[in-house]
């Protein structure tokens, strides 16, 4: 089943095209890594696909009414904003906003969803902690938990693992992978190509406003692509412990 479909999709800012002629189809069970150099348009692609910025062409998510879209896809922006010193539990409960009937209080099922999300992000003992007093990495995990609590078929996250310690980077990618194996789909932008290669089922490379490559990690991360788009050389090998990707130097 298709969870996101973009056809002839583009985004303009002023006279210049930031994205153009994007065709992308994401189905259930996928963990899609959006990779590309700084300023390639990764964030713009995701925000545009959600209908948060003006765009041309067709996006299945942007075409939905706001509430239906909030049931179809959760979005974790790159800016990790927590404006008020609320408790972690309340913060994650905000993810249940689209599921609450007007003027209703959170039900037991909402609280259960919050507990599940906190558990997935290993924040079980953080319920009553003040979110703004957590470390940057802990805040990021709380915000990922917030997006998970929305319990949508599709989760889109903009650089969710930046600033996390190695264990939680791997843990978060494994959480996303397990969501994908449960039939959800996750679209995640990231700069760590090693983690992207190991955990994503599919990589989409964005460069100069278009999709430069789209496919399985091993097929995408070829030496010519790494040279032309990222300007690096890398060691890539499919080992008995999975795909290993290590950037080696600048071209």
């Amino acid at each position: 089943m298709s969870l996101l479909s973009l056809t002839g999709f583009g985004v303009k800012r002023g006279p210049c095209d930031i994205l153009r002629n994007i065709d992308l189809e994401v189905s259930t069970g996928e963990l899609v890594g959006i990779i590309g150099p700084n300023g390639a348009g990764k964030t713009t692609l995701m925000r545009g696909a959600l209908g948060l910025i003006a765009h041309s062409g067709h996006s299945s998510l942007a075409a939905l009414p706001a509430r239906a879209r909030a049931h179809a896809a959760a979005w974790m922006p790159q800016a990790r904003e927590i404006a008020w010193p609320v408790s972690v539990e309340r913060l994650v409960m905000l993810g249940r906003t689209p599921h609450l009937p007007p003027a209703a209080r959170p039900s037991a099922s909402d609280r259960a969803a919050v507990d599940r999300a906190l558990h997935r992000m290993q924040l079980d003992s953080f319920h009553t902690r003040t979110a703004t007093q957590l470390s940057g990495g802990e805040q990021a995990r709380a915000l990922i938990a917030r997006a998970l609590a929305q319990e949508t078929p599709l989760l889109m996250a903009d650089e969710p693992i930046a600033g996390l310690d190695p264990a939680h980077q791997i843990g978060t990618m494994q959480t996303f992978a397990s969501l994908a194996s449960e039939g959800h789909s996750v679209i995640v932008s990231l700069h760590d190509l090693g983690l992207a290669a190991r955990h994503c089922t599919r990589l989409v490379v964005i460069d100069k406003g278009g999709i430069a490559a789209d496919g399985a990690p091993l097929d995408v991360l070829t030496p010519p692509l790494l040279r032309d788009i990222f300007g690096i050389t890398a060691f890539v090998q499919n080992t008995s412990q999975g795909l290993v990707f290590q950037p080696m130097g600048i071209v």
């Binding site: 948060l52 706001a66 979005w75 922006p77 904003e81 927590i82 404006a83 905000l94 689209p98």
Partner: peptide, 14 residues
Amino acid sequence: DALTLGEDAAEAMG
């Protein structure tokens, strides 16, 4: 309440 997470996240939550 939703705006606690910023305008983008709030809008994406409907």
